[in-house]
Nucleic acid binder design. Structure first.
Length: 467
RNA sequence: GGCGCGGUAGCCAAGUGGUAAGGCAAGGGUCUGCAAAACCCUUAUUCGUCGGUUCGAUCCCGACCCGCGCCUCCA
């Protein structure tokens, strides 16, 4: 069964493949860099990462663009309030965002596009829309007239045909002739406001046009896949479709894939509830990036995710168990031969893992396949029926698992004792034990523990790992 | 009100028209000089409520209740 994904456009789970050659042209909506990204944002960014990894595992090459929105009302307000330039203000949060992505082991998209690097192209696109009769001006701002675009509503499955101009209270600060028309270009409201001089006048782009323009610039008229959070379906993605298809006359994206929301302790995240967390907040409480990544990845992207501290602890323990298993596979002394039952179980786990991921990235089920095998293999290892010939396939399962989840390798800690030193200490302890100098042996063990190294006395000898 | 998602053990969560994956927690055990660590075992007559279809429904249909998202900036 090939990879299947849920397509918001058709509201069905459908087989996915790129239109041309083997390369997936994908565009994902990135952050608006007015503040540090929070874990709700990262739920979506982790989803993008899982999607990338499994697309590649499915044999596709990727051409992935993610935007950085570095001009919008909130950014301007904050930058002005702090007396900083737009660029200076957004550089800070852009860097923080990319750092956070690195910490969470998110793969870097092939292209990261900052909106303000493409203002002229946006202005040209708007000029083209004006020439095509899709727009109107009001106080030097330019609006898209959605009544000119017949397919409007096809993504969010809303019916706008009954809409009447003026029927709805206009909450926007700008004058629009129809409540759902949206700004393509905003003229500055006062002199301090950052603005660009372009072929269509002075001002700045609206939010939606940046994605349409940068997607076209990097990937062409039709994308294979466009992703984002569910909250972007309307109006953002609906508007992107309207602009892009009005510009090119071609379908904008073949697959639309959206990730569900994240709750914190069963409640929506908000600053007033005090449950609004950035990665930095979680790390300062002692949680590791791997735990956060695992928790965010372990719930399928189309299900709401309840982010809890118990879940974070749970993730940590689960990761330890997976790491222990891999270590055991690598270090166990095994008898020659191959046990066919174990081998069959390993194959079943491989197949189960792949089938689950192929089924709209069902990470929960994929994890189930891994843990099921883990237990069976541990039983076999305990019973001596896990043989040397079973080792490779079992380790390959862990490689497959980690190619998606990427949590087995512990994050670097700044100050750590070297592996050679650990080995030397272990040898010293073994000697002390042999001489029945248990006091000395315990002392060595405790010293290592203080340095974050845990010793395990197993029947195959001493194994160690970092805390 | 419209559109969309969801309600499964203490918590997180998968899943199927034929009788409930997996993880965490909890309890028990194995190993060990003692520990630690590790590993194993046990834990839902039951899947929001009420009807219906069916030989049989957690899974299909209908109604209802509850939670969440979007409809205005928002992952």
């Amino acid at each position: 069964m090939p990879l299947q994904l849920h397509n918001t456009l058709t509201q069905k789970v459908e087989p996915f493949q790129p239109l041309a050659d083997n390369t997936v042209k994908m565009y994902t909506c990135g952050p608006t860099v007015y503040d540090y990204a929070h874990i709700g944002n990262f739920r979506t960014f982790v989803f993008y990462d899982l999607l990338r990894r499994w697309l590649r595992a499915s044999g596709f090459a990727l051409n992935h663009v993610m935007n950085i929105t570095d001009v919008d009302d909130k950014i301007i307000r904050n930058a002005v309030a702090q007396g900083r330039s737009l660029r200076d203000y957004t550089d800070n949060f852009t860097k923080a965002f990319l750092d956070d992505c690195g910490t969470l082991r998110l793969e870097r998209p092939e292209h990261i596009a900052r909106a303000t690097d493409h203002i002229n192209e946006m202005a040209e696109a708007i000029a083209k829309l004006e020439a095509g009769g899709y727009t109107y001006r009001s106080d030097d701002s330019v609006y898209f007239r959605i009544s000119q675009f017949p397919g409007y509503g096809k993504l969010s499955h809303n019916d706008f045909s009954g809409m009447v101009a003026g029927a709805r209270v206009d909450v926007d600060e700008y004058e629009k002739s129809d409540a759902r028309d949206f700004a393509l270009w905003k003229a500055p409201k006062d002199k301090d406001e950052p603005a660009w001089d372009t072929c269509i006048g002075t001002g700045r782009p609206g939010w939606h046009i940046e994605c349409s323009v940068m997607a076209y610039q990097f990937l062409g008229a039709t994308l294979d896949l466009h992703a984002g959070g569910v909250d972007l379906i309307f109006p953002h993605h609906e508007n992107e479709i309207a602009q892009s298809e009005a510009l090119t006359g071609q379908p904008f994206a073949r697959f639309w894939v959206h990730s569900e929301f994240l709750l914190v302790e069963g409640q929506k995240m908000s600053k007033s509830l005090g449950n609004f967390y950035t990665l930095r907040d979680l790390f300062s409480r002692g949680f590791t990036p791997e735990s956060v990544r695992f928790l965010l990845a372990s719930v399928p992207y189309r299900k709401g995710l309840n982010f809890t501290f118990e879940g974070l602890h749970s993730a940590k323990t689960a990761i330890d168990r997976l790491r222990n298993f891999k270590l055991r596979l690598e270090t166990a002394k095994l008898a020659e031969g191959e046990n066919s039952e174990v081998q069959t179980a390993a194959e079943a786990a491989h197949t189960g893992f792949r089938a689950a991921m192929d089924d709209d990235l069902n990470t929960a089920e994929a994890l189930g396949a891994v843990f099921e095998f883990l237990r069976a293999a541990n039983v076999a290892l305990d019973g001596g029926t896990f043989l040397d010939g079973n080792r490779a396939r079992a380790l390959e399962l862990m490689v497959l698992f980690d190619s998606v989840f990427e949590i087995l390798k512990p994050s670097e800690t700044a100050d750590g004792i070297s592996a050679d030193d650990v080995e030397a200490q272990i040898a010293a302890r073994a000697a002390a034990k042999k001489a029945r100098d248990f006091a000395r042996a315990d002392q060595i063990r405790n010293e290592l523990l203080e340095k974050g190294v845990i010793l395990e006395d197993t029947k195959d000898g001493v194994r160690w790992k970092r805390k």
